[in-house]
Amino acid sequence: MNMADDGVERPQRWLVVPGEVITTERVKLGPGVYVRGGKVISKIVGLAEVKDGTARVIPLEGRYVPKPGDSVIGIVIDVKIPGYDVDINSPYTAFLPREAVDTELEYGDVILATVKYVDEVKNALLENATVLRGGELIKIIPSRVPRVIGKKASMITLLKHMTGSAILVGANGRIWIHGGFSEVAKDAIRKIEAEAHTSGLTDRITHFLEERIAEAKAKNETGESEE
């Protein structure tokens, strides 16, 4: 995996499993690693990377754990007097105070919100909530979200641009898609999820989108002419 997206040469990334030694050099510790006997060791299944003096493992699996500043897509699961309990696709539930949202919410409402604070047992407090109406919600493995967004949001921009859909990606693995070629967008996101650990993904997705959109357009035209 020497060559990454866009054919740009990047520092090497390789697949590691828990307990595997990443480096014996002195480096800063990023996420997904720990030190044992002077060696930096992977905690998880993922792609190891030693870059700018930091060793890290980019996870490929795992549940979402809320972190302040994350933008998440949640579903209201309880309405209480001071606010709402929100399911954020995580072992932990989040709470959205009533004053943090303009409108009244109901059970089942889908919201986009920011994690404001996480307490010591990881229960999250949300703010800046907006209700998402219409569209579709799909779920992917949360650790593969960065790949859907891409470097400097390149992948998500590509998706939005080519499919014409409104797409919102939550850090918790929920993705909201509205309008445009939403079926194509969904398939493309599934493809990104399945191949998150491979390189040259942007090129492949561009190709995939071009093909599928041309197909969809052709289908639409014949459908219209028949009418």
Binding site: P18, G19, I41, K43, V45, E61
Partner: peptide
Amino acid sequence: LADAGIPMRDI
């Protein structure tokens, strides 16, 4: 467990 993405010291 490793496949579930759970952090472990070793398998």
